[in-house]
Amino acid sequence: MRRIDDRHVFGVAVDAETRCAHYDAEYDVLALRFGCCGRFFPCFECHDAVADHAREPWPRDRFDEVAALCGRCGAGLTASESLDAPETCPACGGAFNPGCAAHHGLYFEGE
């Protein structure tokens, strides 16, 4: 587990920029919050590895709440902000892994 600002990021071998044992490339720096527990994880595999419950995506009716976390600058992004700018952090301009868009349905309800 890593702490970024006042948020904890849970997972397996999480580094200071939220990379993990499953996704550790330069641009793998976006942690996502799950609807089931409200916790941030670097990826769905980390959730499955350390949580004691089934994962649920962030609910659509809460897309205006912080549901993503930039591992570079620590900015909290709402689900809508994360989906609107899926490849860069709107706060620092840092790049995220463009392949993450293929997994949006695992993280955000209805995507």
Rank of each mutant, 00 (worst) to 15 (best):
G74F: 09
C89I: 04
V50Q: 05
G76V: 09
E109W: 13
Y107L: 06
E109A: 10
V12C: 13
L32K: 02
M1N: 13
F44R: 04
G38L: 10
A95V: 11
D64F: 04
E109S: 11
G94W: 03
A95T: 08
G35R: 06
D6N: 15
S82D: 04
E81R: 05
P90M: 10
A85F: 02
Y107W: 13
E17P: 00
L30T: 01
E26A: 11
C46S: 09
L30P: 01
P57W: 09
P86H: 08
C89N: 05
F40R: 00
T88R: 12
H103W: 08
G94L: 07
H47P: 03
D84V: 10
P86N: 10
A102R: 04
D24P: 00
R62M: 11
P59V: 13
A79M: 12
A16L: 10
I4V: 15
C70Y: 00
E26Y: 11
F108W: 15
F44C: 09
D48A: 10
P42K: 01
D84F: 13
F44Y: 09
A49F: 02
G74S: 07
G38Q: 11
L83Y: 04
F10P: 00
V14N: 12
G110N: 14
S82K: 00
A68V: 14
D28T: 04
E111P: 03
E65P: 00
A21G: 09
R7E: 10
G110E: 15
P98N: 05
F41M: 00
H22V: 10
A25K: 13
H53N: 14
D24I: 02
D28F: 07
A85H: 07
C20F: 03
H8G: 02
F34K: 00
G74L: 05
V12N: 06
A79I: 06
T18Q: 14
P98Y: 09
A79R: 04
L106C: 15
A79D: 07
C73D: 06
R39K: 13
D24F: 08
A21Y: 11
E87T: 15
E45C: 05
F44G: 12
G74V: 04
C20Y: 00
H8A: 07
R60H: 15
C92S: 09
D15G: 08
A16M: 03
F108T: 02
A75Y: 03
I4A: 07
F44L: 12
A21T: 11
A51W: 06
E26N: 04
E56Q: 15
R55Y: 09
L77W: 03
H104P: 01
A16D: 09
W58E: 01
C36A: 13
H103D: 05
R72I: 15
R19D: 04
H22D: 06
F44I: 08
G94A: 12
R33N: 03
G38R: 02
Y107S: 01
D24Y: 02
A31C: 04
H104G: 01
L69R: 01
G105M: 09
G110T: 14
T78G: 01
C43P: 06
D6Y: 15
E111G: 10
C37S: 10
A49H: 02
I4F: 07
R62S: 13
V66N: 00
G38D: 00
A91L: 11
A25D: 14
R2L: 02
P59F: 03
V14Q: 06
A13F: 05
A13Q: 13
